[in-house]
Design a protein around this nucleic acid. Structure first.
Lengths: 221, 221
DNA sequence: ATCGATTTTTAGGTGGGCCTAATTTTTTTA
DNA sequence: TAAAAAAATTAGGCCCACCTAAAAATCGAT
């Protein structure tokens, strides 16, 4: 069975919307994420259901089947591997790769994906710190601890970003905050939840919004 | 202006069909090359004409405009660069890359193409010996001398193949005939035009059909 | 429980790219 | 040069992915 570009994009969207809730995903949420109309979603959800990728009953939202999950994960895998390629090999910046990877992820060839993975040295995370599933669809474990949930005294490494928009990524770039950057949480201001961190011998103040979008791993020194 | 996958494929087909004749390209020829129906071609040719890629008058065939030529060459450039990537970096065999490159050639990003070219070291020829246009659309010169047109005594290098079908490429592989392989033409049998060549210290007999599909460069020792 | 708001689906339409069948134009050949 | 053959176009329809507008189902508040 083969899947169109649109089908793959819908399955990916539904996969992400399903994370952290065992409920079916609503038509509206899918429409909002895909930037289409609810009626278009109904059409596609029905079609994907016919193809065995979704469980769907009218007015009850969509749930991925095992098959749908596989297709979604395969697509995510390709997307993230291509992002690594674009950054590591072609020296794109991490805020420039999303749109191109969005196209590359639909190239059909399992052999290509696996060879690309090998060529890249079996990376576990993409340039934004998101985990890359292996060819069996298993994700490496990764931190989902947000900087905003840390406490003064914590020593942490930046391991990923929740918001991967070019705007946020470029801002991080200008602040010299990268994956792997280590810092110590000094203080959290109660009135706006902004976070003061020490990096090397200088301090930086990060807004709550920024802190909520940085994934970190605590290191026990 | 953006071009769909189909539009790019039509322009590529018309480009190749235009080579070596300044006539317009017939609907039938395009249909045959694209494996579609003549009526579909009429539709698309009209559309591409509206877009300024073709000059087309009813019943008179299609001629590429400068714009159409640019789009075609850009697509060919991408195709051939990706083929180099697949063979050189991912170690695909030369008979395996066509279908994948056929998909990759439609990825939209001039920046990607140029960075890929640089990453690959500005290759001049693809794995089948076909010339890769540079970013200005200029093709490097290459040999179009067929082995079948050589004469006994000629020393030649294989520089390309005319037929790039997997069948032919695999056959060459099994015969240990590669790009860059050098040989001396020993004899051409008049009754079937088959060619005897010496490679190292052994002789091989190549059928006329094979010889007509091998491009060579004569070397003056 | 019912009314109103919200969500979801249905109905019907659009453009892209393709098809078959019928028709028209051009070319070939007798 | 007229008839036959070939090539090209038109007419009309299909499937995909999308849309708007209208209808139906569900949810929430009183």
């Amino acid at each position: 069975m083969s899947y169109s570009l649109s089908e793959e994009n819908y399955l990916k969207a539904i996969f992400f919307l399903s994370l952290g809730s065992s409920q079916g995903v609503s038509t509206t949420d899918i429409a909002s994420r895909m930037e289409t109309k609810a009626s278009s979603v109904t059409d596609m959800v029905r079609k994907l259901s016919d193809k065995g990728c979704l469980n769907y009953k009218k007015y009850q939202g969509a749930r991925l089947t095992e098959l749908g999950r596989e297709v979604a994960i395969r697509t995510i895998r390709k997307h993230r591997l291509w992002e690594v390629f674009l950054v590591e090999k072609l020296h794109f910046k991490w805020d420039e790769v999303h749109d191109i990877a969005e196209q590359l992820e639909h190239i059909k060839s399992g052999e290509l994906t696996d060879r690309l993975e090998s060529f890249l040295g079996f990376p576990k995370f993409d340039p934004h710190g998101d985990p890359i599933p292996n060819k069996h669809g298993q994700f490496p474990s990764h931190s989902t601890q947000e900087l905003s949930d840390c406490e003064p005294g914590d020593q942490v490494l930046i391991t990923g970003v929740k918001d991967t928009s070019p705007e946020f990524l470029q801002w991080l770039e200008r602040q010299e905050l990268h994956l792997g950057t280590g810092m110590i949480v000094r203080e959290i201001f109660p009135f706006d939840q902004s976070v003061v961190v020490a990096i090397g011998d200088s301090n930086k103040t990060l807004s709550q919004l920024v802190a909520q979008n940085l994934f970190v791993k605590k290191i026990t020194p």
